[in-house]
Write a protein that binds this DNA or RNA. Structure first.
Lengths: 341, 341
DNA sequence: TTTCATTTCCGAAACGTTTCGGATTTGATT
DNA sequence: AATCAAATCCGAAACGTTTCGGAAATGAAA
């Protein structure tokens, strides 16, 4: 392996100057820089990141920790996020560390250990829960991190998030405007911030329209097709008169709902209006639905580069801070929603 | 941050001895080890991996590099592998680095750079192609690596692989024994070792039974349901008389084939026998098919811990070598195959 | 008491880089 | 020719650990 010392000997320069040339400092002449570059290429030099880390205190590594083996299709979005983030960080010269922990591992222990190892410049958190211990821990330890999602309203921590509250509110408003009063919600698992925010938006939307809240109209669970199948059928059997509209928290749930409504011999939108939120995952397209699906829409993939930018700016104090963002959603009215008959 | 020096001052011991105590060397007394352990806990000491790496030359990090954004469902297995491997390496005290490169990036460049950075003790290669440049490169550079799959027959490199040749051979034998002569093969993408091995086994199986090879009977492509749908229908329209049996290289393809055959108004197994290979991914179960699907079977997940063991043994010379393995497959005859009518 | 092996310890060097503070060279200005 | 600022360079220390070679302490055997 070629080291700086080898290079400096070969060039008759000091180690210092070679280092500064390679890092493009401004107190080394252009000609020297050029000579160094050439010699580096000739001798196949490449900086030893470990040594650099030791002195700079930065490793160039970020870490994403997830609990439990990821199974599909529930974790489709999780995978897409991992894939997207890895690419973004790679392109920024960071290394992306993925640490899967056995199901049920205590996150506090894991994060403490990860931080203490000193291997990571920053962390990306996903699947934020309502009282997420990780956020408090990392804040206390003073480690840079960014959340895909967010914890609490108007949080101090860095985040990239979708306007989950606004999405649900808009969906309800659209339906109540069409005259619907009994509106079901197929939601994600309880306890996650995005799920709870949707519920908040849903409730406020109902309240605005003067509609009483009925908790039988909310069904929580994994966001997969089969779950929607079960939830929809159960909901329509439990409640009489039946709901006239259904909100699906993502496209997979919508697919299950379509299936269930068809099985129940109900037509969309004549008998039931359906509206969903579209994360725009590459694996399932909202446009493939029949009848075409009315959606709110905010692409997940818009987030990857933003998340990377935010975290990198938090890590490298020389960069100017990139602000947390809440992306707005689009509303696309298609054929699956209609006025109450 | 607490360092060894802090600890040694606090204990009145030399840095050397504290280091050796922490690493459990045998020339430090039991009582000292105990004292050190306690002080370490008290002061919240945890070894600085960067500094350790610099002197030991090992980083405790392994790397998996993949080309292109992973999209579902084609890369379902890729994700499962990543998830499984990450967990296995984490449990062995290694950090798992996932580097996604933009589609079409030159792998030689990427691997050269990754190796040169000195950040990684070893690499895991997936999606081995027939003339895989990466293997030659890493062998030349003398870097530990293990292949999920393999390159060439009876290769020198470390690997974990399925007996793809044997799988296809067995599948053909089973079908020819039942009297089938026109046997289709829905295969994976061309160029990958596993795909080509299946073709070899397929051809040898036909030859054994004295059946002439017809290249219209092989269809290659992404291993997804829609591809099988298209391939099956195209195959049955191109070839007259039609095939009487179909081999599907994985379960997703089988699902598409079932759909296509149903659309073509052909019954399984009365009109067409179907046999598939089951990687046992958590997202799709062979048992859910009707009629029940005859399969060869070798679970992907058996490989994760083996792969980790192999690579770790290659990295750490103090461990005894773990041999490469070719896992045997099981054969499970169910209702989708039958004697030629 | 002496000897010698065993146990337990330690100082100093090394890993490859960055950075601090200061030194030298250059070239324009007086 | 002297002066001074700007441009370019350098030595040495530092980052936190492991390890090499040897030293000191211990205790049993002579």
């Amino acid at each position: 392996m070629t080291t700086l010392k080898d290079l400096s000997r070969h060039l008759g320069l000091s180690v210092t100057q070679v280092s500064r040339a390679i890092n493009d400092h401004d107190d080394v002449s252009a000609s020297t820089k050029e000579r160094v570059r050439e010699a580096a290429k000739e001798l196949g030099y490449s900086v030893n990141l470990t040594a650099r880390s030791l002195v700079t205190g930065r490793t160039g590594m970020v870490c994403l920790i997830r609990d439990g083996h990821l199974n599909l299709p529930e974790h489709t979005s999780g995978f897409e996020v991992i894939s997207g983030l890895s690419m973004e960080f790679s392109q920024r010269g960071y290394q992306f560390n993925l640490q899967m922990t056995p199901e049920g591992t205590d996150p506090v222990k894991v994060y403490k250990k990860a931080v203490a190892s000193g291997s990571f410049d920053g962390f990306i958190l996903t699947d934020a829960t309502v009282n997420d211990e990780r956020v408090a821990l990392l804040e206390e330890l003073g480690v840079p991190f960014v959340v895909h999602g967010r914890v609490g309203e108007d949080p101090k921590h860095a985040y990239f998030d979708i306007d989950n509250y606004g999405v649900a509110l808009h969906q309800v408003r659209h339906l109540t405007k069409l005259g619907h009063k009994r509106i079901g919600l197929l939601n994600g698992r309880d306890g996650y911030v995005y799920s709870e925010s949707r519920i908040d938006g849903y409730k406020d939307g109902l309240a605005e329209a003067g509609i009483a809240f009925d908790d039988r109209l909310i069904r929580s669970g994994p966001m997969i097709e089969d779950q929607a199948l079960i939830s929809t059928i159960a909901m329509f059997q439990d409640i009489n008169p039946a709901p006239t509209a259904l909100i699906c928290s993502n496209i997979l749930l919508a697919k299950g709902a379509y299936h269930a409504l068809s099985a129940l011999n109900l037509s969309i939108p004549q008998d039931v209006s359906v509206i969903a939120h579209d994360d725009v995952l590459s694996s399932i397209r909202a446009s493939a639905f029949y009848p075409a699906l009315t959606v709110t829409k905010s692409p997940f993939e818009d987030g990857y580069s933003v998340i990377a930018d935010i975290l990198c700016s938090r890590i490298d104090p020389s960069q100017k801070d990139v602000e947390s963002v809440e992306v707005p959603f689009k509303f696309i009215e298609r054929a699956s929603t209609d006025k109450l008959a």
